[in-house]
Structures are given as structure tokens and as C-alpha cells.
Design a protein around this nucleic acid. Structure first.
Length: 223
DNA sequence: ACCCAGGTGGCCC
DNA sequence: GGGCCACATGGG
């Protein structure tokens, strides 16, 4: 019986397999935030279409989101799904930031814990979205947990049930170095592995990830 | 004709 | 705290 792989070892395996992923497409903090909201339970392919529509309309910033007519906004982001909810969430976010701060940068200067709680108070911003915004837009090291991360770690470590968000976040954070680039890329690696779950080869002898990845999301739910 | 996707909030017990 | 459900589109 081999010992369980550590998180640094797992990262090393993934990094070796997929390479550095230079993740979260988006050139500006505004675009990253918009993408983070649009990608909630949606495929990135669909989000790309929505973002492309917004870009063509010159509406890829919080200030333009604030100004634009809601029906127009809904039409642009329609491909990303849940477009009524998401247009509302975008509006709420843009209105909040622009009426409380001179700029995003000012808001991002707050201590991370305060920033996180503040983001979580906004309707439509949950833990993953808040942490994604902090990690990729504010560029501060908060580890993002998503469905893939839960599913994969659950299988690697033979947990009976999937861990709680904050719990898993603590465990991973305490197992790796507190480093922005590592946090960003490790999260990206989890997603990359998750996307390839049914066709990936075992990563290494300590981490026969293929075995854990033969089951799709569906079988998680039925358990 | 299903199943799934880089979640979140609301409601119930 | 856990268990459902609605939310909507596009691709496999």
C-alpha cells in the first residue's frame, strides 16, 4: 500500500502532464470578474461567446455594465446560460463597486479576509466566485475550490463524502507554499484534469488518477 | 433523448 | 447542517 500523494507531489505530477497553464483568460480585472460570474455552472466555451458579444459592444468593463440597458445585457450574455440571473449579478456587482470605491484597485487594497467577506455579501457572489476574483483579478493568494477540486481530492484521498469548501481550502492551503503563481496554476491544473477525467492516463505511481476519474459527475450525485 | 458544464440562492426540515 | 430545486444555453 503506497502512501497518499501530498499536494506538492500532486501539483508536480499535474504540472508535468499539462505544463504551465497560464490560466484565466482575460486581460483586465473587469473582464476577469465578468468571466467569473458568467462561468458559474457554465462551460467556458459558452462564456467565450458571451464575452465576445460584450467586447464587440464595448461593454467589457464594470462602468459599461452599469450603464447598459438590462435587456441588452441579457441578450449579449445569453450564450452563457442563466442570463437573467447573471445580468442581475453583473449589475449588482458593478453598481456596488462604482458607488463605493473610486476604482477596483482601491477595493482590492483591503486585507484579503475583509475583501472576501465583502464580496460574499453581494448577491450572486459565492465562495468560488469571490475567491476567483481575489486570486485572478486582485492577484492575491487565496486558493480557489471548484467542483473538480472537490471531486478529484475526494477520490485521491478516498473520502466518503466530498469535503466542505472552506475545509478543503484550509487543507490545501496548509499543504502548499503560499504563492500567487502556484495558487493560480494549481487551480488551473485541477480543472484541466477534471475536463480530461475520462481519457487521462495515470499521472504517476503515487497518483493513479485515472482510476479516480473513471466516474463522471453523475455518479457523484447518485452516491 | 439525455447528460453535463470552471455555482448560487432559496426554501424546507 | 444537509437535501432539493430553479436558473438556461450549447455541445457531446
Amino acid at each position: 500500500m503506497h502512501s497518499k500523494i501530498t499536494f506538492p507531489e500532486l501539483y508536480s505530477c499535474l504540472r508535468n502532464r499539462f505544463g504551465f497553464l497560464d490560466w484565466w483568460p482575460g486581460d483586465t480585472p473587469d473582464e476577469i470578474i465578468i468571466g467569473a460570474i458568467l462561468t458559474q455552472n457554465a462551460s467556458w466555451k459558452n462564456v467565450e461567446k458571451a464575452i465576445s458579444n460584450l467586447k464587440d459592444a464595448g461593454c467589457l468593463s464594470l462602468s459599461s455594465i452599469k450603464k447598459i440597458n438590462t435587456k441588452m445585457l441579457e441578450a449579449y450574455i445569453r450564450p452563457s446560460g442563466f442570463f437573467r440571473q447573471k445580468s442581475r449579478r453583473l449589475k449588482i456587482f458593478a453598481n456596488y463597486v462604482l458607488s463605493n470605491y473610486d476604482s477596483l484597485d482601491v477595493m482590492f487594497m483591503k486585507p484579503v479576509s475583509a475583501l472576501r467577506s465583502e464580496l460574499l455579501c453581494l448577491h450572486g457572489i459565492g465562495r468560488e466566485t469571490a475567491d476567483s476574483i481575489i486570486l485572478y483579478a486582485a492577484e492575491k493568494p487565496v486558493f480557489v475550490i471548484d467542483a473538480y477540486t472537490k471531486r478529484i481530492t475526494c477520490r485521491i484521498y478516498d473520502n466518503k463524502k466530498e469535503p466542505e469548501y472552506d475545509e478543503l481550502q484550509r487543507i490545501i492551503s496548509s499543504g502548499i507554499k503560499r504563492n500567487l503563481g502556484l495558487y493560480q496554476d494549481f487551480h488551473a491544473q485541477f480543472v484541466e484534469l477534471g475536463k480530461n477525467y475520462c481519457r487521462t492516463e495515470p499521472l504517476c505511481s503515487k497518483c493513479p488518477v485515472r482510476k479516480y476519474c473513471l466516474f463522471g459527475a453523475r455518479s457523484d450525485k447518485s452516491k
